[in-house]
Write a protein that binds this DNA or RNA. Structure first.
Lengths: 182, 182
DNA sequence: TTCGTCATATATCGATTTGTCATATGTAAA
DNA sequence: TTTACATATGACAAATCGATATATGACGAA
């Protein structure tokens, strides 16, 4: 899959038009957040470029005080390019975990620091799971397309597995959980 | 955690000395492969730079035919820098999945292509799991430090969860598995 | 009331990183 | 035999990140 920021933006815009700022928010907080990332520094140039190439149209929305909102919408040509990008087999998943690196090199850090790192990771996983659970509830009412459901289910499975493993390896964490549930 | 290619190289070299090529192989095929990635284009400059800064020592090994092998070893100063980098709480896991992007935008691709993508992902997961299983067997005999065991267990849990979810969502895949097991 | 900071909104820029190519050569299979 | 792969280092363009700059309004705290 020709997967880059361009393809990502086209994909998000295929659901609804949006400004660069809104795209970033959607990628950070929406469905996408579980499996992809992008920064302003790559989004804005990509939008400008694709607009120039005719893959997007641009509409300026005046706003009081703030800079004009530049709302981008995908064109038929853009949809064609997106479809072409998707028509290649996707590359393998890539997973980056500083936590696991730290666990591997644990003989270099104090027990106290390691516990802190484990706690943080536990919190990260829990929060991600909670976010998905919230989305799943929210989604029931509105559109529930197959893709979203699949992605949320995948994320839930994987995160829960990681959380279970972590708690099994560090029984201390379960106490924290029980205390919080009281 | 000040996590970048430098820290990564120092971490790998803290176990044993190695050349740039061997580092890349270790990162691709060893423990590290499950949670990090790095290319030659970033490894070689990092090694050169860290050697100049005194974090590494360099020893040239002559080889017949091939270019000299440049074997790097970590110094006490390097170990100090590594420890300092590790003494910061690790950033959250980052997960990149073209497969999930494709699943989310499935209305843009044909059913045939989607099936191919699912099959590929299934194969990817299975192969990764097999690699870990092999490593777990291999490790029993040699050193079995806590870090390695933790990382392998984590990887196994997460990959198995993904595989189970995939097979539950696409019952077609189970048949393939049974056929292969015959 | 002034101060900090958060949210909205766009954009640039240096630093980092990736991915591809170039350069060698030996081994082994097709 | 010629094609591919493994060893080995490195350069380089392109992509991407992360931090920062620029505005403004809202909201609560000192």
């Amino acid at each position: 899959m020709a997967m880059n920021v361009r393809t990502l933006c086209l994909g998000v815009l295929s659901f609804k038009e949006a400004s660069g700022y809104e795209l970033k928010k959607e990628i950070e907080e929406g469905m996408y957040s579980h499996f992809i990332d992008a920064s302003f520094g790559s989004i804005y140039p990509a939008l400008t470029q694709m607009n120039a190439e005719g893959l997007l149209t641009l509409r300026s929305e005046e706003q009081s005080g703030r800079p004009d909102k530049k709302v981008y919408a995908i064109t038929d040509q853009g949809r064609a390019v997106l479809a072409k990008s998707l028509a290649v087999l996707p590359a393998s998943n890539k997973f980056k975990s500083e936590f696991l690196f730290e666990m591997l090199l644990q003989h270099f850090v104090s027990k106290e620091h390691l516990d802190l790192a484990i706690d943080k990771h536990h919190t990260d996983l829990s929060e991600d799971l909670a976010k998905i659970a919230q989305k799943q509830l929210h989604q029931d009412k509105s559109k529930c397309d197959a893709g979203s459901l699949f992605v949320m289910g995948y994320g839930e499975s994987v995160l829960r597995a990681a959380l279970n493993y972590l708690e099994a390896q560090c029984p201390r964490l379960k106490k924290v959980k029980l205390t919080a549930a009281e």
